[in-house]
Design a protein around this nucleic acid. Sequence first.
RNA 1: GUGGACGUAGUUCAAUGGUAGAGCCCCGGCUUGUGAUGCCGGUUGUUGGGGGUUCGAGUCCCCUCGUUCACCCCA
Length: 412
Amino acid sequence: MAVQLKSIRGVHDGLPQDVRQWQQVEQRARAIFKRYAFEEVRLPILEPTELFVRSIGEATDIVSKEMYHFVDQGGDDLCLRPEGTAGAVRAFLQAGLTRAGAQRWFYAGPMFRRERPQKGRLRQFQQIGVEWFGGEGPSEDIELLAMAAAFLEDLGISQVRMEINSLGCQQCRPLYRDLLVKFLTTQHANLCETCCERMDKNPLRVLDCKIASCQNALTDAPEMVAHLCEGCDQHFTGLKSGLDALKVPYRVNPRIVRGLDYYNRTAFEAVTDQLGSQGTVLAGGRYDGLVAELGGEATPAIGFAMGVERLAMLLPEAESASVDVAVITMGDALLNHSLNLAQQLRHADLCVVHCGLGNSKKQFKRANREQARFVVVIGESEAAQGLISLKNMATGEQQQITLEAALQVIAG
RNA sequence: GUGGACGUAGUUCAAUGGUAGAGCCCCGGCUUGUGAUGCCGGUUGUUGGGGGUUCGAGUCCCCUCGUUCACCCCA
């Protein structure tokens, strides 16, 4: 059939089969985050364009070419949020919470980026994000990473490794950057075309180039972690020792780079090789300068976000909740009686479908299709005696008993 | 934004340029108070859309939309 009206490119429907998996991810996240005293916030999907330009960085791909932005009827320049941190910081400031002590937030919802879709990459996708305001670490970094690791473990996702790095701060990163550019200049001939462009635009990006020849050329490249200032070095050392103490598995990957401008110090990614080239399933870092950048009192903060669809792809298919009872009515005159019976079964907290009217064969087929564990048959003889017929669909056994007795059997 | 692959029934897939088919699903019957197994029968298509070449296009060409994979980038 020709489907005339289709969802737009890269924007997919969440059908029951998908949503079951998303809910698994969400439920596990809620359960784990609660133990760390994080609370849910619900933030706008629409924000002023200016917010993202100032926080994420005007030169980033996200802001320069991937945002859905428009001017509304009142002349306001708005955007569908491409990520959650900027809005969280805005909300934090707007609520005047800079002196309210630590704020531990999480949120779940859709984000929008107008990219070319591919496996694990959509134009509308869901993130669960976590933001922790008011701690400069490293204890917050340690606990946040431990929480992320606990979540992934609890979800039952193995084959994911946590990689960490330090990006330095405003003092040591520029010095390192100069050092790196000097090195890259010596390797200029061995780098790919895009890397040569990156040298000017964003030299750190060269570090995570996927091309093997570039990686070869980078063998002796200076690493940020070896050029941290004293403060950053202590911070990173503290982070590693804390993770060791909590037995959180990790690997230092000096090539991790963050795409968004606001990150400093701790950066991390949970990666899998099961998803093709979109292997990053959870990523985040520290953004100590962002609150001040957006006009607030300087407040250190750290956070991460995870891609719900990507995580769901790593989960086994989820079965729908099974139907406990299907109610079958023999004779139109008994409809109200059987509808009433279905309600009584539901009061007992059972999952019940009513099979409507029609001949018994048709109704039984429906019951079978619903994969009901039991069928309750209401016919004239049952109604006359105040009993029901209860059939176990797996064994085929059927008995005429009272409703109370039936509830016992179903529960048993 | 760049490059490759793909698009046929509800679904999974066939069809040397020559009548669009099969399995599964679905519907009906065998059995009007009994499903799942069996047997018999039945429905299903603007071949993603538009244009072109040809006596003739699912098949070849162009455009477009979508999916997918990779790059860029990122969750």
